[in-house]
């Protein structure tokens, strides 16, 4: 447990420590702008698209519909709370209705 904790910390510390090079190459600096988008997407999309069986699921997967609604809410309101609330409520309504 502690080892896992230390390793996780080391990962987070890795690039801001003294050992890291002081100046990153410009190209790398620029490519880092895509980090938040790419990482968060790679976590969230499988959460929505993959069923518990580990297979892709489209038919009868209300999470996809609810996520679609959440994207629209996020685009229009740009509010985190509204996105979460609308997403959860649509999921509940869909599950309740079908």
């Amino acid at each position: 447990m502690v080892v896992c904790g230390l390793f996780t910390f080391a990962t987070r510390y890795s690039m801001i420590s003294e050992v890291a090079p002081n100046e990153l190459p410009r190209r790398m600096e620029h490519s880092l702008r895509f980090v938040p988008i790419a990482v968060l997407t790679a976590i969230l999309v499988p959460e929505i698209m993959i069923a518990e069986s580990g297979n892709l699921s489209f038919y009868g997967n209300y999470r996809i519909v609810a996520a679609g609604i959440a994207v629209l809410v996020a685009l229009t309101t740009r509010s985190v709370i509204a996105t979460i609330c609308f997403g959860m409520v649509s999921l509940w309504l869909l599950e309740w209705a079908y």
Binding site: L40, L44, E47, R63, R78
Partner: peptide
């Protein structure tokens, strides 16, 4: 049945969408 785990992808949607 409350599907509380779904709040995580929703949070990430809220964070990613405005960045696009």
């Amino acid at each position: 049945s409350w599907s509380l785990g779904f709040v995580i992808p929703l949070t990430f949607i809220a964070l990613v969408t405005p960045l696009l």
